[in-house]
């Protein structure tokens, strides 16, 4: 298939790339960016309780960069389990990253994007920047999308490393009303933006199924809640998509 945006564009220059990097970086100061910061405030609070030091927590944010995985990690440390059990739990909670990266990469790469660039950018792919990118990236010239995403992803990571360091420096536990109110921000943001960024009806069906299946599977097999909900919910939604296509 001929992709009109793939063909004639010249390679963007350094100044052009910097402009798109800054545009991505400026998207960190947005509602989703602020919500991710509040989620990291909650994480820093939890890490403090687990006896993790400031430097270790900041290191975790920079190198793991997947909040559910980090929360699972701290939970494992809190319950005193060993390296292998911790690693297994983190690995299971992070399988979800693969389908997210798979669906973003074809939209992220330009005609001359190097593999190495994509492998480096993949480190920044987590829920928030994935949702922002799925919403915005289609309206951008193909050759500068990697620069935009590099700005968005890297500044998001650095900002939240600073947020976690600040929470440790302040070293005060949050008042219960505030902590309880903060908890609802993350699910409400994901709920609304996930609905808004869905490409097709299959994703809407998958979303409703995932919402119910996640907690349901958690009651029977907590280690496989995300994976099970993803495969069953996503699979059923895709089946509905195929049936609809055929009858149309």
């Amino acid at each position: 298939m001929q992709m009109p945006d793939d063909t004639v564009l010249p390679t963007p220059g350094f100044a052009e790339r910097c402009r798109w990097f800054l545009r991505g970086a400026s998207n960190v100061a947005s509602v989703p960016g602020l919500i991710l910061c509040t989620a990291h405030i909650g994480f820093a609070d939890l890490a403090q309780q687990a006896g993790i030091t400031m430097a270790q927590a900041v290191f975790m944010v920079g190198i793991i960069w997947a909040l559910p995985g980090m929360v699972v990690f701290v939970g494992a440390v809190l319950s005193g389990v060993g390296l292998l059990a911790t690693a297994f739990a983190v690995a299971l909670s992070s399988v979800r990253l693969t389908p997210m990266v798979v669906s973003l990469v074809p939209e992220l790469r330009g005609s001359r994007t190097r593999k190495l660039t994509l492998y480096l950018l993949a480190h920044f792919i987590a829920i928030t920047s994935w949702v922002i990118a799925m919403e915005t990236i289609r309206g951008m010239p193909r050759e500068v999308r990697t620069s935009y995403y590099f700005g968005l992803g890297s500044i998001l990571v650095v900002t939240n490393m600073i947020v976690v360091a600040i929470v440790f420096a302040v070293a005060a536990a949050l008042p219960p009303v505030v902590a309880a109110g903060l908890f609802l921000l993350t699910p409400m943001y994901f709920l609304t933006s996930l609905w808004g960024s869905a490409r097709e009806q299959a994703s809407h069906i998958a979303m409703v199924l995932g919402l119910v299946l996640g907690p349901l599977i958690h009651m029977f097999a907590p280690a496989f809640d995300l994976l099970g909900a993803g495969l069953i919910g996503g699979g059923l939604a895709f089946a509905a998509h195929l049936i609809k296509d055929r009858s149309a």
Binding site: S103, P106, L194, G210, L226, G234, G235, A237
Partner: peptide, 18 residues
């Protein structure tokens, strides 16, 4: 990719539900 997006969406939705 429709399938992959559906799986990714259901996974994130499961995080929300939990």
């Amino acid at each position: 990719l429709v399938l992959v997006r559906a799986i990714a969406t259901a996974l994130v939705a499961a995080v929300i539900g939990n």
